[in-house]
Computed example of a mutant assay.
Amino acid sequence: MDAPMRTLRPLGLGEQISQRLRIDIISGAIPDGTHLAEDNIAARFDVSRGPVRDALRQLESEGLVENRRKRLFVSFLGLPDIEELYSLRENLESMALRLAVERASAKGWDAVQRLVDTMAVAADAGDHERFDEADMEFHTSFYRLSGHRRLAEAWRPYQRTFEVLLEMSNTPDMHAAVVDHQEFLDIVRTGDADAAVRRLHNHLLKAKRHIRDVIERQADLDESVPVDVS
Rank of each mutant, 00 (worst) to 15 (best):
I211T: 08
A196L: 01
M168I: 08
S27A: 10
Q16E: 09
R189W: 12
A100W: 11
R49P: 00
G50L: 07
G63N: 15
D110Q: 10
E137Q: 06
V179G: 11
S27I: 00
R98T: 04
G126T: 07
P10H: 03
L72H: 11
V225E: 10
G126E: 12
P51M: 12
D192L: 05
R20M: 01
S224E: 06
V229S: 04
L59H: 09
K208F: 11
G126I: 11
A154R: 15
P172V: 08
F45M: 05
R53E: 14
A120D: 15
L36T: 00
D186F: 03
H148R: 01
A176I: 04
A106L: 10
S169W: 06
N91T: 14
D46I: 01
H139G: 10
A29P: 12
A37M: 08
A207T: 06
A104S: 02
H128G: 03
I26P: 13
R217Y: 07
G28S: 09
T34D: 04
D222F: 02
F138G: 02
T7N: 03
G28H: 09
K70C: 05
A125Q: 14
D39I: 06
S48R: 02
N170F: 10
R71P: 00
R217T: 05
S18K: 13
D24K: 15
V116K: 03
T34N: 05
G50S: 10
K107E: 09
M174G: 09
H203R: 05
P4E: 13
S94K: 09
S146L: 08
K107R: 08
H148Y: 07
E102H: 12
V164S: 05
R22E: 12
N170E: 09
T118C: 01
V178G: 07
E84A: 10
R68D: 15
M5V: 02
D2Q: 11
H210L: 10
Q182I: 00
K107C: 06
V121F: 10
A196I: 02
R89P: 01
W109C: 05
A154M: 13
R68T: 01
L185K: 03
E15P: 03
D54I: 10
V112N: 01
Q182N: 11
